[in-house]
Design a protein around this nucleic acid. Structure first.
Ligand SMILES: [Mn+2]
Ligand SMILES: [Mn+2]
Ligand SMILES: [Mn+2]
Ligand SMILES: [Mn+2]
Lengths: 149, 149
DNA sequence: TTCATATTGTAGCCAAAACTACATTTTGAC
DNA sequence: GTCAAAATGTAGTTTTGGCTACAATATGAA
């Protein structure tokens, strides 16, 4: 119950600090999916001219029913619009998010590549990592890349 | 419908490749919580001598009911054991996971620090990032740290 | 123009992770 | 030893994000 000596033991952060960190991670997690959808929709709109639910589903590796439900959540969140059989579009807010997410994705991939990670692993890992990189860390990444250019 | 020219447009990966990447991210996401619990339990066991559900809950910033349910899932997954009012312990499998997770956590923090990220931001971001770093990337991180030691 | 196929939509199911509220058990102060 | 407080457990609800199965609609080939 009481600390045994506090000399050489594991460095447990203060409870509040640790709780705040985990909470931040949880909130990032809850926005990760939205970010992936918005980024993908932006890419499809630019690359293919349209973003159809089926294509979104295929690219994400989920069923079309799942994609349609997620798109509905995007609409509720004010990030996208969609009319039946006419594809998905981004609102102003969605486009702004897509832009930020795209930049961040690229930055994360570039840093991983710079650290010696293979192109494919960098892309794959970045797909998860990107959602947990804070503004502060993003700045450090940019700095690092510039410094070793 | 048809690609407009394919010359200078956004680099959409092949559908299968992209789906595989997103799938990998989803599966990492589904183990992230387990990893955090197991790591925290190991830290508490070493640091405090015991890992009580209440302490786990406080440190994670969730209600004790949530923690208890998650611990039940850990038990079902063969990672932990717990007897009522006697705290939580790790199975052999749980200890092995904790060890891996701990190493990975430290490595991610060290790399972030090396890239110029502040100590607190590194710890906070690592809490999310760690779960999406592949073995391949982990090796690259270790290499990078060794090279600039 | 018709009609098969592709696309989209809906319904219903499930598990994970969160919560609050309440019940039960242990422990420790006295 | 009692009994209040702390810890633990349980019940019930919600949201998210998956799935399958089926229904409805558009599109395009013949
Ligand atoms: Mn992603
Ligand atoms: Mn991305
Ligand atoms: Mn973590
Ligand atoms: Mn961790």
């Amino acid at each position: 119950m009481h600390p045994v000596g506090k000399g050489l033991m594991a460095k447990l952060p203060a409870e509040g600090t640790q709780a705040r960190r985990f909470g931040k991670t949880r909130s990032a997690q809850s926005t990760a999916l939205h970010e992936d959808y918005v980024e993908l929709i932006a890419d499809l709109l630019e690359g293919e001219g349209e973003a159809r639910p089926t294509d979104i589903a295929r690219r994400l590796g989920v069923s079309h029913a799942t994609a349609i439900k997620s798109i509905a959540r995007l609409k509720r969140a004010g990030l996208a619009t969609a009319r039946p059989y006419r594809g998905v579009f981004l609102t102003e807010k969605g486009r702004a998010l897509a832009e930020r997410v795209r930049l961040r994705h690229r930055l994360v991939v570039d840093v991983l590549r710079a650290l010696g990670v293979s192109s494919e692993a960098a892309e794959a890992d970045a797909e998860g990592i990107e959602h947990y990189v804070s503004e502060h860390t993003l700045k450090a990444f940019a700095q690092f890349l510039k410094s070793r250019a």
